[in-house]
Amino acid sequence: MMKVVKLHESRSHEWLVFGRDEERPSKIIDTNQYMIKTTNHAIMLDPGGIELFSAMLAAVVHHVPINQITHLFASHQDPDIISSLGLWDKTLPHAELYAPWLWEGFLRHFGCNSIRYNPLPDEGKSIRLDEVELQFIPAHYMHSSGNFSVYDPQAKILMSGDIGAALLPDNAPLFVEDFDAHVDKMRLFHQRWMPSNRAKKDWVRRVRQLEIEYLAPQHGAIFKGRDVQRFLDWLDELEVGTGVSAR
């Protein structure tokens, strides 16, 4: 079964994290999926790969009826993020997808016949679900060239997609417990998957202006409280784009 943790709960909305699926085929990377449930709506953030679809659908209906899911968000085009789109398209024909404009023609290869594709402009955008405001913050080249983070100013949660990702063993805790030890699990990922130091600085600068209680990545563990600042400081200093050797 997929594990589910409630990250935030208030009168207006809930944040849920789905992950650590025990039945996940061993060769696919582990992912965290997020859902924000408001009074009448729900949005799934990076709903995951096609291999995870059954487990996700089953986990989701523990919390909302299917027809309450009206929105989907894909931070970027990767298969672990959204290759399930073709099946969500059958499940939620009336839903809307928010995803980078840059990837529309590409994402449609996964099957997007009924769902409406709302292309996110490069500068980002805010939407409202009932009383909840969600901001799509530009995170281009982190790692994908068209890429967004999602910020909820009320809950003070930043869903950061692949930024902050760590490659952890199965059944690792869902929250970062020892930041210094955690750094080893995420260094390679950031150095090799993130292409641009300039883009990294830009994202860190943007995100430092936000008040963040949880920084929630799509792989690995969630940063909480002071670890959020530690992470931003660490990333700010890190040299990325190491796939090209400096000769």
Partner: peptide, 12 residues
């Protein structure tokens, strides 16, 4: 099958 016990399982 996985959602057989879920409160909204029947919405599938």
């Amino acid at each position: 099958q996985k959602a057989s016990l879920a409160p909204y399982g029947d919405t599938i």
